[in-house]
Design a protein around this nucleic acid. Structure first.
Lengths: 232, 232
DNA sequence: CTTATAATTTCGGAGAGACGAAATCACTTC
DNA sequence: GAAGTGATTTCGTCTCTCCGAAATTATAAG
């Protein structure tokens, strides 16, 4: 059933525990954001004590999933990246399936998928993907890695930095915070929405932005959770 | 989202780990079969060493989920039974959903559900149940407990003991062994099938049984996995 | 170049869940 | 009622993942 030869379902993947998958996913995520996967950054993202992260990072380095320079942070190896992408694929397909087919509210799917991603088999995830027509993006606009570990890693500017006047379209919104997600949804700031920044107050002040036909004011924190690309 | 007041989603349920849920489910199952949930029986069903079961049973007794008479076996308390039924509901709804909606082969759904039952939220399981029209039986014919912990515990004779000549209908087949399940499926021995035993060889010998319009011969072990009721 | 601060690691320890080996108990058989 | 057999428990130990406290290192400031 499972394709053992595909890049995202290697034999070593069978032994990864749920915490390990979470660490790898978090490191991938931080690196993707351009930052260094430092001990404190990981501890905060995973809601763990730094001491715990220190220990786990050492173990993962020994297992060859990442490289660790003491006091410098962790970098995923090829094996670690593959494992992270496999988990990411499960997560995002689950999110898509739950939202699209089962009608789970879009601010709940992240937490639900967070649990299921460690339990669902590759075969099941592939079935879900197939039922959805192999989507390339999840409900929050995040790209879904293929079974072969290919993923669109294009970096997009956040709404907080989008130039005033330029027309843009929402590419993705962060799914980490359910409350913010509900807020952004209420503002119609979903993937695909057209936006145009009218004004930005200085010193990290509020942003006047046209979302579709509605003029909204949003703060910088929320704006940083929204990623924008130019209209084609 | 989750109905905290329903019998199968109490607050204590939030702290049950996957192994604990597995123990409770196994004890419920063994008790349902009329047997005593003895250390060795549990060890065999859970594929663990008896020493491990001994330790866990003590912990569960302290937590008030079961009562344990040393050398006599374990009996679920009301709290333990409720927790077991909650897990059983998740398991059987997941089985139903995977088989019906996602087309997972009926001999695979058990193993898949075994993992997912510890990860899926009550809200999600209820969504799946609703999408299926709140089924009362899973694909193997096992009754699905309601959210309030009500379950049909009617005991049915196995095909191995069904009287010769009497017309019967298949109520359920055991889902524990995927290989046997595939075998029974090939023989059309699925819930709803009509059967009539033509002859039974003595000393646990093979059984001649009419399944639908086909005359089959099956052994006693397979026959014990099939439960029969009289035709109305 | 010393010192303060912040980040990181080390150390000792805890809890869950598992194991094998050895001791204990129950029950049957003589 | 003594002895043997099989089930059960106890004991010491292991791995994994986490923690707080203390020690260490890096970095920036004086």
């Amino acid at each position: 059933m499972t394709d053992e030869s595909s890049a995202l379902a290697g034999p070593s993947a069978l032994t990864l525990t749920a915490p390990v998958e979470d660490y790898l996913k978090a490191i991938y995520d931080i690196q993707q954001g351009g930052g260094a996967a430092t001990t404190n950054a990981l501890a905060e993202r995973l809601a763990l004590a730094p001491a715990s992260v220190s220990g786990m990072v050492r173990r993962l380095a020994i297992q060859g999933l990442l490289e660790h320079e003491p006091y410098r942070g962790a970098r995923l190896t090829a094996a670690g990246r593959t494992a992270a992408l496999r988990t990411l694929r499960r997560h995002r397909i689950l999110e898509s399936y739950l939202a699209t087919v089962l009608g789970v509210p879009w601010d709940d799917v992240h937490a639900e998928a967070e649990q299921l991603e460690h339990a669902a088999s590759d075969a099941l995830v592939d079935r879900m993907a197939h039922a959805l027509g192999d989507p390339r993006f999840d409900p929050h606009g995040a790209p879904i890695p293929t079974r072969d570990g290919v993923v669109d890693e294009t970096w997009h500017t956040t709404l907080a930095e989008w130039p005033v006047g330029t027309l843009g379209t929402v590419m993705s919104v962060s799914d980490k915070d359910a409350v913010m997600l509900r807020y952004l949804g209420d503002l119609e700031l979903r993937p695909g929405a057209m936006i145009q920044v009218h004004a930005r107050a200085p010193y990290d002040g509020p942003i006047d932005v046209l979302v579709g036909t509605q003029l909204r004011q949003i703060g910088p924190t929320a704006a940083r959770a929204v990623r924008i690309a130019a209209v084609a």
